[in-house]
Design a binder for these strands. Structure first.
Lengths: 306, 306
DNA sequence: GCAAAAGTGTTACCGGTACACCCATGG
DNA sequence: CCATGGGTGTACCGGTAACACTTTTGC
């Protein structure tokens, strides 16, 4: 049975479709990615960029939308966010966290009811530099995909979104499902390797659906102090200087931060480890390189907001 | 078509079921409600109570569970939370807010995939005192129910969960849907006017599913300072003394609060209006009665957390 | 030397806390 | 009068902001 074959009057007896949309922040644009705005307007590392997908279907045709799509049978919600984000941006994010769920009835008018669960994700320096996987990977079944970095990025595995691999013996989708998926993508979200471009958050195009509000909420969440304190270092590589870490905070806060005070506060947190190494190649005094305490420790974070 | 008629192997081609579970806090027990713990153990107004529903079906039969159930075709998620909560507690809460969505695949094992969206709600003094509606109201269709207090409680109407009444001309459920609903309630949640009892949060029974973790998370959210600052007054009536407001904060924080400092901080927020009236009947100095600024203003809150 | 950013030290301010004290009522 | 909670005043303390100053590199 396919939803496309279901009469409109019968749809009310079907459960709502569940889709995921993701706001993925990066402090720059991946190598070779398309930018939807005149690049170079702002100095790199001072503003956030997010990937958007141009819709190729009926509602909001041609408009830009957040990467996303319906959940598969054997996927957790976070997995859906990762899969659709990966197929859009061609790379795995360093961090994923749930934002909010939108289940209003009018979002899809008379069509099938749609519940969208919004995630926010984060691409660090390392994630952007990683060479993109082959585009054919887009349609690979879940069990054959390499597990993303999420195991360590999202610390403690959660009982609702397990990170332990699940078994799935059969690969490939039986006929009849593709039509369903197309239909669902009509309703919300999008997933495509092409038709993707990165935009600075302060120069976004007109968006499909209510995605502009989702992005505004994601930005708000990112800026809430308790959030970025535990997340800012994910924008950086394995080691970093306090100046680099401070630049991330300045991008998040949208303003300058006193270097002296930032140094003391960052070190007082106890999360930074002095590697003993120094930055080289600058035309000023070399800075110490730090590491975040226990890049693979399981001592912090619950995966749930606040 | 009914899910009960669907073969297990075909369920993977069905979209996940969407259900809502709600953690509803109150500072006391409604008039005439059943308590699941020895009442009177703690002085009234010092700890939170939540309503639970005893399961009458297969998984976790006999265990207590959060009120909840699947979403109806024309309901927003918040409406589902309100409806199921109302049918369990026989009264409308003063406040409802979304908590988190749980979509792990293993929550329902081999059965149909289930996505649960958790809400937390709040019963104030006024909500508990209101006489409970007739039990037959449990099955009333959405359009005939009186709109709950939520319009003003959740301030700015949100585009995902509109509070404007929606039209629905036909009443009553056609045959074939009840089997579906039963099936979904097997998976999670529960809804019943009977089999309901109130428990203090510090003496909960063993719970079905992962509802203990949902409650722990809800308590955590309630205690996060920025939350309760904007929500504490909802536990009280239209007017209240600073001592009453302080008692709520002490219950939330789980400890004593300095009356002098609390007074200054509460007044400094600018959210309290001196009504000019005084409390009477106490055997000490009469306290000023305050009102929360704009009990029906639309100037604060977004409906989204943090 | 000069520019630039790292790194250190000092001071002022501000919000929260602790606590002493007075006020107004019922009994 | 006493007990009780309402209401006021004030000192202390820790964290943050502001900013002057020294250090170490490349050019």
């Amino acid at each position: 049975m396919s939803y496309a074959e279901t009469s409109a009057s019968a749809r009310r007896y079907l459960p709502p479709a569940v889709a995921v949309s993701t706001v993925a922040f990066a402090l720059g644009v991946p190598d070779g990615a398309v930018t939807g705005s005149d690049a170079g307007a702002a100095p790199p590392g001072t503003t956030f960029w997010i990937p958007l997908v141009r819709r190729t279907r009926a509602p909001f045709l041609g408009r830009w939308a957040l990467p996303g799509g319906p959940t598969e049978w054997d996927e957790t919600l976070a997995d859906t966010a990762l899969r659709t984000l990966r197929s859009a941006a061609l790379r795995d994010p360093g961090y994923v966290e749930q934002l909010y769920s939108f289940g209003g009835v009018q979002r899809s008018a008379e069509a099938q009811r749609l519940v969208t669960i919004a995630y926010w994700a984060l691409y660090g320096e390392h994630d952007l530099a990683t060479p993109a996987p082959a585009a054919s990977d887009t349609a690979a079944p879940a069990a054959t995909r390499a597990r993303p970095r999420q195991e360590t990025a999202v610390r403690a595995p959660r009982w609702d979104d397990p990170v332990a691999p699940r078994l799935r013996s059969d690969a490939g989708d039986p006929g009849g499902l593709d039509a369903d998926r197309d239909r669902l993508e009509d309703l919300d979200g999008a997933a495509a390797g092409a038709n993707v471009a990165w935009f600075p958050v302060d120069a976004l195009p007109e968006l499909a659906f209510d995605h502009d509000e989702i992005i505004a909420y994601a930005l708000d969440r990112l800026r809430s102090k308790t959030e970025y304190a535990s997340v800012a270092h994910r924008f950086l590589g394995e080691t970093f200087t306090l100046g680099q870490l401070r630049a991330v905070h300045e991008a998040v806060r949208g303003g300058a931060v006193d270097p002296a005070n930032f140094r003391r506060q960052a070190l007082a947190q106890g999360n930074l480890v002095d590697t003993g190494a120094f930055e080289t190649g600058t035309r000023h005094r070399p800075a110490k390189l730090y590491r975040f305490r226990g890049a693979d420790d399981e001592t912090t974070g619950t995966g749930m907001p606040r």
